[in-house]
Write a protein that binds this DNA or RNA. Sequence first.
RNA 1: CGGGGCGUAGCGCAGCCUGGUAGCGCGCCUGCCUUGGGCGCAGGAGGUCGGAGGUUCGAAUCCUCUCGCCCCGACCA
Length: 580
Amino acid sequence: MRMSKSFTPTLKEVPADATVASHQLLVRAGYIRQLAAGIYSILPLGQRSILKITAVVREEMNAIGAQEFYLPALNPREIWEESGRWTMMGENMFRLKDRKGADLCLAMTHEEVFTVLARAELRSYRQLPQAWYQIQTKFRDEPRPKSGLLRVRQFTMKDSYSFDLDRAGLDKSFEDHRQAYVRIFGRCGLKTIQVEAHSGAMGGSGSTEFMVPTDAGEDLIASCENCGYAANTEKAESQVDTTDKYKAAGESPPLEEFATPGVLTIEALSAKPYGVTADQQLKTLVYVGDDKPVIAIVRGDDQLNEAKLQTASGASVLRPAHPDEIQRWMGARPGSLGGVGLSGKGLRIFIDRRLAGLTGLVTGANRDGFHLRNVSVPRDLSHATSADLRMVNAGEGCPRCGSPLTVAKALEVGHIFKLGTRYSETMGARVLDESGKETPIVMGSYGIGIERILAGAVELHHDGDGIRMPMSIAPLHVALLPLQMQDGAVRDAAERLYRKLTDAGVEVLLDDRDERAGVKFKDADLIGLPLRIAVGKKGLAEGKVEWKQRGANEVDLIALTEVVARAQSAVRDGGGRLSR
RNA sequence: CGGGGCGUAGCGCAGCCUGGUAGCGCGCCUGCCUUGGGCGCAGGAGGUCGGAGGUUCGAAUCCUCUCGCCCCGACCA
């Protein structure tokens, strides 16, 4: 590839709207350009990297016996109605109508379409197991696209689906995918950790996320260095103190209402005249789960974890209640809410399990400007269901071994689900088993965000000068820089090297522009190809060129005759592939 | 959806408060010069100031509405 004839628009300045490193660098290095919020054009350098990534993905998927498909992104409403997700997906799904007025959507994922194929064609257990995948564009109308390629509305996903006769088969398919994912991310230069995850709108019994630890990520993961426990904080548990710290001496005193005019927050109630510490208070939050009120109670200094409330309540769609809904159901405004006295009103109430058995607590009275003291959970909140609702914090005890947990930000690059029969039952995908009995197919679903691999690699591999692409997914292997274009010998030597390297299967970006050496060095560093070969007058006089690895500090002078062999082995050693 | 910020040349920005002929840097084009870390000099092209309406003799600037983008939160497979 010749720089002089390529579209590689590099930028000297940082784009104003880019905040994370991968976004800034991918734009500056000419890999991507933004078209609209969360919608990006992939430029030639970006596309070359994407193709490298998808090649790795294909190899590893094929290696576990998965077969590649290509399914429609444009879906009819009907199949999404069948699975129940036409409404469940809510605002996050792009919807449109055709000329006849029929409803269509842009697929966010492909359980429905693959299940339609499976139910139409899979009839016998003899046809199982199957593993099907595709690499395809997904559309999600994210409420808030951000961070360049990290959170977008249109992106490429490798999604695969397994079809098995029983749970044991699913376990095997799931494990195959886990191993394939470990290889894929490893080969792409990503360090990932596997964490237990919340299954969300996918349904199913369990899921594992593959996370790249980086501050650019949006997820929080809790992990234990001692025993290896790791979970997304949407799901993570911890060991916390549950002693009955505020228990009154002797008999439990009766509930007592007291006036708290203008007190609407935990902090206000813990301040001056009241002095009720946050850990003595109950925080009461009102949600709407599948159009019904759901009330959650956690300790005043704890944070409600909405994913956990969703799990506990079994709701498929959960949102905070509006102020008027709260007023209607609770009889008071936020700030004076409580769970006491709500039994028999048809409200579903959940209380965090750390509060079980505690007494001497304070909560809102469901009367504006009043709170209750002497609250006893076993006595006054027995109508509430105990569940794990709270967000874990760093330093709390690992649920397995008790060692302190670490909490860190991470980027989700893959997610594998055991779906079970969630889709095969609702959509009627069944096979006959050995005994001739109809049984729903047991499914799994497995996703990888392709552009996120690219962005994640840049987050992990860059420095002040630009990107440091891993060999395996770099757009090309070598930046070849003739430093003095006005010198015929330099030009000729570079051209000969370009030809020889290319013939040897090494992918070369020849910077044959009539630019000064400094410009070429800067652009090469920015673009981040793993190898740099500089051809200069001085070295050439001795038959030598400069060899430098992008990340290295030292520069080697090597003989022209060594270049090809050395480049070939560097490509191989770096996990790359020669192109012929 | 709540809060904040920003839309002025391809990119990054100033000008707006206090209305009066639209500017700077980078990039781009031409010439000279230079030639190993984003050279130097000279000349040049390029803007309906996001859009609509209003106030005014006059609007990038003031007012109203609207669209878009970014950040924080909420939300999120």
